[in-house]
Design a protein around this nucleic acid. Sequence first.
DNA 1: GCTATACTTCGATCGTTGTCAAACGATCCA
DNA 2: TGGATCGTTTGACAACGATCGAAGTATAGC
Lengths: 101, 101
Amino acid sequence: MARTLPQPAREAIEIVTVLQALADPVRLEVIRELSTVTEPRSCSLEAYDVDISAATLSHHWRVLREAGLTTTFVDGRRRWVELRRDDLQARFPGLLDAVLA
Amino acid sequence: MARTLPQPAREAIEIVTVLQALADPVRLEVIRELSTVTEPRSCSLEAYDVDISAATLSHHWRVLREAGLTTTFVDGRRRWVELRRDDLQARFPGLLDAVLA
DNA sequence: GCTATACTTCGATCGTTGTCAAACGATCCA
DNA sequence: TGGATCGTTTGACAACGATCGAAGTATAGC
């Protein structure tokens, strides 16, 4: 896990941006799938139950990361995504649980 | 309070639609202001701290109502809006609290 | 070095949406 | 009945955003 792509600090995460990021069926789905595991998960298209191109999924990862919902790790050619549970819980307690319930 | 404008039944409220409705700064603001009172509140522009036209606010009330977030009552020339707290709490427990906190 | 791999970025398309002014509809009241 | 008021709807426009294929970038492995 070489480096981490740029992402907002915990205090810089904005509620409107988070809601905008969650307000898309594809992103909500991948966030749900991310929430079922605790370790980082592969970024790749095959790992998710969505019917879009790799380019589009890449766009969604960026939106989620820039909104502060996920962390992306780069490891060679592979990328890994992880939900920022703690940061989100600290910033907006209960929000993620309510959305994913 | 003559009639109530059409709105989705509790079971028909969708999470993505609710998130889309909340993911706008103006709508989030008026929802916040609505949440500070328990009775229905006036629909009129002067009653809210937003910098838009009456036509645009009217559009936002429609989006919120159709998403299932609010109920609109018609009484003569006046309209009143109310947060659907119970329906939202039943459908997505904790969501509204988390968003408004 | 070369080539295959894994994902991103670019450029373009096209539907969606936030916005306003103007027109409209309904209601109240003199 | 005729205005004035309150709010919606319509029509138009610009900005945004989801999407894709193609080109680009970095890395692994030979």
